[in-house]
Design a binder for these strands. Sequence first.
DNA 1: AGCTTTTGGCTAACGCGGTTAGCCGACGCG
DNA 2: CGCGTCGGCTAACCGCGTTAGCCAAAAGCT
Lengths: 216, 216
Amino acid sequence: MRRSPWSCLSWLVSVPRAGLDPAAVVAAGAALADEVGFAELTMARLAERVGVRTPSLYKHIASQDDLNRRIAALAIAEAADAIGAATQGRSGRDALAAAARALRDFVVAHPGRYAATLGITPTGPDDPIVIAERRGLGPFEAVLRGYDIAPQDMTHALRALRSMFHGFATLQATNGFQWSTDIDESFEWLINFVDRALRCTSAADPAPVPGSTDRR
Amino acid sequence: MRRSPWSCLSWLVSVPRAGLDPAAVVAAGAALADEVGFAELTMARLAERVGVRTPSLYKHIASQDDLNRRIAALAIAEAADAIGAATQGRSGRDALAAAARALRDFVVAHPGRYAATLGITPTGPDDPIVIAERRGLGPFEAVLRGYDIAPQDMTHALRALRSMFHGFATLQATNGFQWSTDIDESFEWLINFVDRALRCTSAADPAPVPGSTDRR
DNA sequence: AGCTTTTGGCTAACGCGGTTAGCCGACGCG
DNA sequence: CGCGTCGGCTAACCGCGTTAGCCAAAAGCT
């Protein structure tokens, strides 16, 4: 490349270090995403936020995709910790409610971080995201152990729990429930619904009535 | 602006009409999104697909955001139709299963369209998206009428249904369930779970046991 | 049929966001 | 004190969304 015509004057400027490192950049990115929305999280904005020119960010992260993945991993780990802490020492309905509320509180408090976790497809089994996710499953497993679920149904029940609370959280986060003020009430209703279903589950026969429906 | 240096030769070229209109552009965009993924749906790619230069698209749609919203509205309407058709003439568990499968089939068959519906915030109460969504709620309401839900619980039950199936669909669409082949089985389990819960609901007392948990 | 208006193509060009190349001072370590 | 790595910087590129303005093709009117 061409040499800068100003390079002969470089002794004029002093460029102090900003004291950045990958973790700091990711944390700043997560905070910024919460403030301006994940879609508005841009390299230029993040650079301005941390007091640096845009290309300098690439000394700490490989790309914007890399940044997004790290934010997602951070968010999942944080959410997992929050849920774990909330369910500590509880069981049954109490634990279920605590987990659900902790997850939703996290989504409401950190919409940008949460949005970063959506639409992420892990690159492989050793992706930090996968590891964090596996950690995040722990508290839900613990909750389920408070109900007596047949062992072969654990995976299904876990997925059902994830689906429900993840679905509710995303619908609320993306304004899926229009102009309605009683969302909190619906959420509590959902918790009761799930609790009832889980207690029912152990009582009901594990197999559906044969022939009652077509199986694909 | 400056006059093109070639304009004196314009009689050389003939520019036939491509026969486009907004609906055709939106349909092509939806199809393209399904093929290459919603995130890869770009104006340039769409223009190439419909055999036109990029700026010409703006004769039919206002902007990329406009295009995305129209694709989302189309997708919601299509999904609503599919679910409505699937539940026609069924009730109870049958209707529930049919609705759930129809929704999931749609998501699997049209991942791009479905992704377009995520993260869309309607502009107002007369947004086509809102209207389509309201139409899409109809079949689920019909399903719920097959169970005896207290009228004041209808809204909550509806939201619970949406949360569950939307959550499951997005988790599957974004590869949220890792390395697992038995997703279909989990889905059927979820249907049974919800069916049981809905039948349980009408039997259970509407209010939770007082004092059994802290209410926020 | 011929004139006019609207419609729907086009090229050129702008701005912005992500990204890379290459330069050089600041810091840490011998 | 010298040296290497690290972490800033500027310049530049590319692709994408978007706008301006030109002009033929279709449609409508007399």
